[in-house]
Every structure is written in C-alpha cells, then in structure tokens.
Design a protein around this nucleic acid. Sequence first.
RNA 1: GCCGGUGUGGCGAAAUGGCAGACGCGACGGACUCAAAAUCCGUUUCCCCCUAAAGGAGUGUCGGUUCGAGUCCGACCACCGGCACCA
Length: 807
Amino acid sequence: MPFQPLQQEPEIQRRWLESGAFRAKRAAELPAGSRTFYMLVMLPYPSGRIHMGHVRNYTLGDVTARFRRMRGDEVMHPLGWDSFGLPAENAAIKHGIHPALWTRRNIEEMKGQIQKMGISYDWDREIASFQDDYYRWNQWLFLQMWERGDVFRAMRTVNWCEELGTVLANEQVVDGKDERTGYPVVQKPLEQYFFRTTKYADELLYCLDGLDWPDNVKTMQRNWIGRSEGARLAFDLEGGSQVEVFTTRLDTLFGVTFMALSTEHPVIEKAAETDPALKAFCDQVAAMSREDRLMSDIKLGHRSAVSAIHPFTGEKVPVFAANYVLMDYGTGAVMGVPAHDERDHAFALKYGLPIPKVIEAESEWDLGVLVNSGEFTGMRSEDAVTAMVAKLQGRAEKTVTYKLKDWGLSRQRYWGTPIPTVHCPACGVVPERPENLPVRLPEDVAFTGHGPSPLTTSASFLDTTCPHCGKPARRETDTMDTFVDSSWYWLRYLDPKNPELPFAKAESDAWMPVDLYVGGIEHATMHLIYARYFYKVLRDLGLASGPEPFQKLICQGMVLKDGSKMSKSRGNIVDPDEVISKYGADALRLFMIFAAPIEKEIDWTGFEGIEGASRFLKRITRMVEEHEVCGDALPGRDQLSPEEKALLIKLNQTIARLTDDLEKRYQFNTVVSGLMELSNAITDLPADAPHRGAVMQHVLDAFVRLMSPVAPHLAEQLWSQLGGPGLCMQAAWPAADPAYLEADEVMVVVQVNGKVRGRVNVPASATEADRRAAALACPEAQAHLAGKEVVKIVVPPGGKLVSLVVK
RNA sequence: GCCGGUGUGGCGAAAUGGCAGACGCGACGGACUCAAAAUCCGUUUCCCCCUAAAGGAGUGUCGGUUCGAGUCCGACCACCGGCACCA
C-alpha cells in the first residue's frame, strides 16, 4: 500500500476506537504490581478551533502515552474542557447565542479536530466543567473548605474592572489592565469570598524542592510566594495607640528618623478626619491608577500630626502618609531608615529628614556591624536582631511574611460555578446544605453586556429559603473564578461518573501523582499554584494522598509564525486542520516533535519542515513496500555478513537510545533523528546481502514499533503489511539485544596531548593493555610521538579512546 | 534593581566530561525526463592548497580545573523570560 494518509488515517483511527485500546483501567482492574503512568495535558478552553500550540502539547503527551503503553505500563491519558469563562458570555452578548450552546458546539468541533490527530485519549473519561455533574463538586468542595475555615468572607480592596463588571485576581492584572481583554482595572473595596492560600504558603514553598519541574517555573513560584524573614515591632504613638511595622532590618532600628504608613492605613485614615490637607493627599494617591503608581518611582509623602516614640531612645519620630507603602504587604507601615534603605533614603532627601548612619558595611544597604546604636553598638547585624527582640520584651518578635495573597474567588459573572451560599436576613451568609447541590445555573437570564451579573435578573434563581432557619432568603449571585475548575479536574478524570464524591480515594491512590504534566509556561504562577494548593487541601480533607499532584512538569514552547505569536488579529494563523488535510496527521506530529527541543519555540516559517517530515514517511513506506514478508529465522551472528551485522548493531543501539530518550531524558526531537538514522542505515543494506529477507523482516518489524508513538497511523499500516499480529500500538516496545550493542571490531580514537591524531581498529575483546599498545603503534600518532617521551596514558571507561601525554 | 534561562554552520539543531556540527531544512552540482515536478546520488564551518594528502583555527569574551571542556568552575558581554516602591 502506498503512503496515502488522507485515506488511511481515518480508517486506522476507527480501528483504535473500536478496539478500546485507549481505555484506562479502574483501580480495581489494575493487575497486582502493575506500573501506572498518568500522562496529563492542561485541559483546553473550548474557544472554537485548536491551534498549533494544542497540536504540539497533545502530540508530546501522546508520544509519551503510547510509548508507556508499549513498554507495558498501565496508562491514564484523558482530556476534558475548561468550559466556564468570559468568552462564552461575550459570545452570548455579541451573537445572542446561549453560553451553553456556544460551548457545546465548540467542544464538538475541537474534539473532532483532536481525534483527527490520532491522540490516544480515553474519551470515556471526558469531562467538561460547565456541566453540573462537574461543577457540583466545586460547590461540594467549597462547602468542605468552608467547614474547615479554608473559605472566608472579607472586605478587601479588589482589582475591579468596570467594563467587565467583575473582580480579577492579582495574577490576572497586568499593567493595570485585564491580562485577557486589556480593559482598565481600578482598586475598589468589596466583600469577597477567599480561599486561605496563605495558610499553605510555607508548604507550597518548600515542596518545590522535591519537584522535577523546570527551574524557571520553580523560581517564578518562589518569587510569587515571596517569603521574607524579619520582625514585627510595635511603636507607641503619642496619645496612646500603637502602630506595628514589619522590617527585615531590625538591626537598623537606631537609624529610624520617620515612619511611613500607607494612605489606607487606619492610623492615617483617622488622622485625615481632622486634617483636610492629609485627606487631600490620600485622595490624590487613591485616584492614581495602579499603573501610574508603579510607573513613577517618585516618593510622595505628607506629614501627619501624629508622632511615634522610638522604643529605645524615646525620641519623637514624625509619621508620614506615603505613596510607596503598600497596605496589602506586611503591616502597611514602615519604619523609615534613610541611611540603609534606598527608598527611605530618597524619601528623606526629598523631605529634609536626617540620615544617621548606624551600620558599618561594604555598601550602605548591606548587613554589617552596628554603630551609634546605644548598647548594641559593635554587634553584628544578625546578632543585633536577636538581642533587640529580647530587649524589646514582647513589643517585637521575629516573623515571616509572604507576598502570596489569599485567593479571591468571587466573580460577578454568569458563566461560572454558582457559589453555594445564601443570604438570610436573620442568619447572615449561610452555606447551602450538601444534599441540595448542585446549585444550578438558571436558564432564564438576559445577556446585556453591561450592568450587574445576569444572575441577579433571575427570580427563579434568587428566591430561596435559608438552609438554617427556613425563612425566605436570597441566593448568592457571585460565581467562582474559573481557576477553581482547573484546580482539581485531573482527579475527576480518575472517577468521572462518581455520584457520591468528587472522586474515590482508591482511584486517586492508584494513579496519583501525575507522572508527566505538559502545558504552557503561562500557567507557571496561577494555575500551577492553585492546583498545588487545592491538592494540599484535598489531602488534609482526607480525599487524596501525597503532598504534590504533578511530579514532573514540562512546559512546551510556543509555535510562532515569522517570529511572532500566531493570532487572529495578526492574521498569521496556520490552521492545523489545513495541514492535516494536506499532509496527514503523522507528518504534522513528526514535524512538531522533530523541529526543536520541546521547551523551545518553533518558528513555522514555511512548509519546508513538514515537507521534510512527509518525505521521510514516504521513504519508509517505500522501504516496507519493497520488502517481501519473510518467515525465515534470523541467522546467528556468526553467519551474518558484515553489513548485516552492522545494521543489526545500529538497530539495537537505536533501541537503547530511543528508550532512554523517551523514558528518562524526555528528549523527543532526538527520537525522530534516531529513527531517521536507522532508516538511512536500512536503506544502505546491500541488495545482495545473503540473508536480506530475514534481516530486513527483523529490522523493519522493530523499526515500525519504534516509530509507532510518533507516527502511529503509518506504523499501524506498515505493521499490517509486515504481517504483525493485532495492533501495532499494542505490540511490545522492542528490547535492545546486548549481543548486538557492540561490533566485533571497535574503533579507538588516539589522542596526543589532547588532540585527536589517529584512529585504530581493535577487536571488541581487546584488553586495556591491547588498546594502549595499538594506540602507541598507530602510524598517525607515531609522527607526533617521535623524539618525545610518553609520560602518561589514559584509557577512560569504555575503552573507545586512548589519551597519550608526551613531553 | 533582583531572580532564572540561553548563546554551536546560511537555518532548526545534535554531542548523557571523550572524534564538534549527527539528523533535518535550504543551497549548489549531477542522474532520470523532450521538459518540469517527484525521486535518487553527491557537495555544503573557516583558513592554507589547482586538487588531494597533511596541517591550522573554531561552540559569545576572558581566565581556571582536567590527560581531555560546547559540556564543570569564576568573571564579563549579549539576548530572552519572570518579578519589581515587598519594607
């Protein structure tokens, strides 16, 4: 059969689906002692069409899943849909189509596209977060967390987007704009639901050490969590009250010449009540957008009428409201040490404050030895902190702060999981009873595109009774951030139809942790921190085991076109469907794997790359085509011609290398070049080789299995042609035969003073002494040895090289 | 500013301390063809050289460790990414 992927691929996909070869076993079905492999890709948002980024991601996952199956592992390889979120709601506003309908159509479309790629997903485990048998478990988990105190309500200044009418997480705000739509974001106080992520800040930080994740992702998470060791210290204010500061440099305490408080700090707000000028300053700072505040690093301040008292010297210290102090970090108050902090220094210069030096060090910002610090003078910074905390007797303590914030999950949108609480005039905010779940999204809502959430227009949704007192009450109209959906979805795949629980522990114990997780780097801080947080909560709820959900993470690089991201607005999209309908899925898969190492970007400059992939597939089809199926037994090593032997050695070396690349190194592009090298070696076997039929049958049989993870359709076709039993995808991965890993004769490289000067052939059985002798006798090396003394001979393990050192 | 990563032919890249440039793309030359496409064969880091043999240089720069460094260590340069008034 010739290479006709467009005809053959759909037929082969049908055989796979009918055979159930993609199905993953349930925990109870797993044979005792079986190795499991959970291959997970980040679930897609059903935007309408798949793009090259999906193709790259899913191909990589599929290569691994198929390889592991052939190796004999039990493989879990599912896919689902992250199907709540703003685009569906926008489509409803723009085109008058209900979000559910829009979402269903998109899923159907994209699923068809993904199936055309021949990705081996167990579709029986498919889930979609917009379906109530998924999101009811978001609600159930929310109630569990409420019970444990992992959910709380609080007034917080939030990132408010007027255009969208909703709150955004810090992670979703970039440069004062919504990272997705670019709409401006302002600060506004609002009562919100929060997950207490800060409770796990320390564990989220130290567990990173044990993960096999890319360095940059771990670093981004560490920065995001932002652990900082220091001390809290309370300053007395004139008139009785106190203000608490957080500092990492308690040792500089004698250098304090002012206090800087956030304009939102209660002490400042109170002072502003009787101080119009201070009030005006605070209003001016509040009016600045977050962007402007960050853009200008000009330190602005306004002196209040309040003074603090230095705990050691008893001196009066002026209290300022300052624009550079953030209310949501530390305590919202800073002790100003102009001599040893860059920002305080700039501030003091501007407002004419004294700048006394209290640390002697290489640079004024470094730790060092204390000077002008009373009884602490002469101590090292580290020791001074401990001594001062002791001396301050309860007024100060060592403490740790984090940049990580609690996760605000309220969204004033329709297309999300309804938060399962009720507002009762008598009982306040009351959680819904678990037996009343799911709280379903109502259908009778209007999508106008402006004003409050559509949920607030549905009487059938709003009117309810209080789960506590039974009197009439109003449902919560906030929905959950869609990141909740993606924070535990991989566990629902393991038990997608469970009506009692989000998933059975037996299933998660059988499959978790995920062995390989593949997705885009853009999820380094948001999704990948939330998911880790949720898993820790689930563990503490007794629902899952183990500290971390994703053991190994790979972030695949983007697919670019002419140096920039493919996007509709740029009009530079290469549609995967078009490529498949011209070259077939295997050619596209092969190209994606081969083009570059997986974590690097691929630039789709033109179709040359995929032409090359297609050429390779045609060549190997021809190779099998020209071979006649041969039932002869493979002769023993001694009977083979040198060329035949060389080919078998190449085959077995390739098997060893590919196995290593796929199993341990997760290096995929060299898998393809290994296949190409082997195919070149097969082509080089002379037509008149004495045992050509048997050797070719043996080599092609293995070759087809080796290529199966990358180009599974063609492998399946060639497997049939070669007379292989059953499906190639269910055949065993070839094992390297140790007898064929080394040739009879091996080449030894001869170095003289570190430079390659010659090569000699020795029998594989040659001892180290033989190899030394052969190297010394090597004619090319002789020329460089003449008249000199050999002072040292090094033969590294493996004996493929002899290094001669001469004087 | 802080943190992380990356620098190798015309291009994508390989080299798991041991022959730098495997494999592929492109280009050039040739075969087949009336011609083209497709396919097949060959050449393709630089210098010296008619050519070859034989040399020499070469993995961002400078230094170090080592019999041996693209790989390990130190400093620097360039680029990419993340964070950033975080007290």
